[in-house]
């Protein structure tokens, strides 16, 4: 609807190309950090696609991410299937899981959804461990791959670009408009003729699809995969914090949260590893009490205040 939409897309395309050149000049250490940033950017943007307009706080990222990783690991290690096939299977599985969760919980209020997603990764981890202990006899998978960090970086960058483009299309579609209305007042949304459950399930499925895809792509990097690692609940919380810290009013806003948070997070894990839990807590409180609309939301507020002041 906005005429500047295509300009935005052009700028993003240029930035993606520049980002793609980065591994050619950066050191291995920098590429490693860049890879993490790409991973969280993909997760946070796709998370915000659903949670931004609807205000449903999803903590299911770890579940999808872990599922994706596990499926790739299993396929490659036990059945010697190709990586490319397995990431497709993993992403689809993530989408299906998300659709099922969405159908069961999204008709209800936000609290049920948060509670459900909160324990989901933990439950899947328990189930997988149990299956492995009782039926498979092994606890983990060894994966061999020729990929190096820059390859993961490029694949994740491609995911970021695709998620962004998809978000851009959705924002300009009926579906995007429907989600904004749902986020404002779900009762009104139903009475103007929106199938609210369907809209939410579609978006949540998208989120699940991409989180599983990201988990699948980085799986070979672990070399040895165990359920206990890939389903670590931390990733869900980190994604929520990064996205909300940046803001969800713009497609690119989560990135504004991803970059600084990840740098601080890495520093804390390197220097004060025992305080990382405390730090997550402080970050949550910071979002609620200081930056309820994220950094980008705060900047937009300031900008409109300055404009009002002028006129």
């Amino acid at each position: 609807m906005r005429p500047s939409g295509y300009l935005e897309l052009l700028i993003v395309a240029v930035l993606v190309v520049l980002a793609a050149l980065f591994p050619l000049v950066g050191s291995n250490l920098h590429i490693g950090v860049g890879l993490d940033m790409m991973m969280f950017a993909a997760l946070a943007i796709s998370w915000a696609l659903f949670s931004g307009p609807t205000h449903y706080i999803s903590l299911a990222t770890a579940a999808f991410y872990g599922l994706g990783g596990l499926i790739v690991a299993m396929g490659m290690a036990d059945y010697e299937l190709p990586f490319w096939l397995m990431i497709a299977v993993a992403a689809l599985a993530g989408g299906v899981l998300a659709a099922l969760i969405g159908l069961a919980t999204l008709r209800l209020t936000g609290v049920y959804f948060v509670i459900f997603t909160l324990g989901l990764a933990e439950m899947i981890r328990n189930l997988v461990s149990w299956i492995q202990n009782n039926f498979l006899g092994s606890h983990g998978f060894l994966i061999f791959s020729d990929f190096r960090d820059q390859h993961y970086y490029w694949m994740l960058l491609a995911v970021v670009a695709v998620v962004y483009l998809l978000g851009w299309v959705i924002n300009r579609s009926r579906l995007g408009f429907a989600l904004r209305i749902i986020g404002n007042d779900e009762t009104v949304a139903r009475h103007v003729g929106i199938n609210t459950a369907m809209a939410k399930v579609i978006l949540f499925t998208t989120t699940g699809f991409f989180a599983a895809l990201v988990g699948a792509i980085v799986a070979p990097r672990w070399s040895y995969i165990e359920a206990n690692q890939v389903f670590s609940p931390h990733i869900s919380f980190l994604v929520v914090i990064m996205a909300l810290l940046g803001g969800t009013t713009r497609l690119w806003a989560p990135i504004v949260g991803v970059v600084p948070f990840l740098l601080i997070w890495n520093w804390i894990n390197g220097n004060l590893p025992n305080q990382s839990t405390l730090f997550i807590g402080v970050a949550f409180l910071l979002i609620v009490y200081v930056l309820p609309h994220g950094v980008v939301g705060r900047l937009e507020q300031l900008r409109s205040k300055i404009r009002e002041g002028r006129s």
Binding site: A178, V188, A189
Partner: peptide, 21 residues
């Protein structure tokens, strides 16, 4: 009255046009 506070006046009315009958 139930309006959509995050949307402009025009967008509020468009909600009816886009998803209604």
């Amino acid at each position: 009255v139930r309006l959509l506070p995050g949307l402009t006046v025009l967008e509020n009315v468009m909600a009816g046009a886009v998803f209604g009958h």
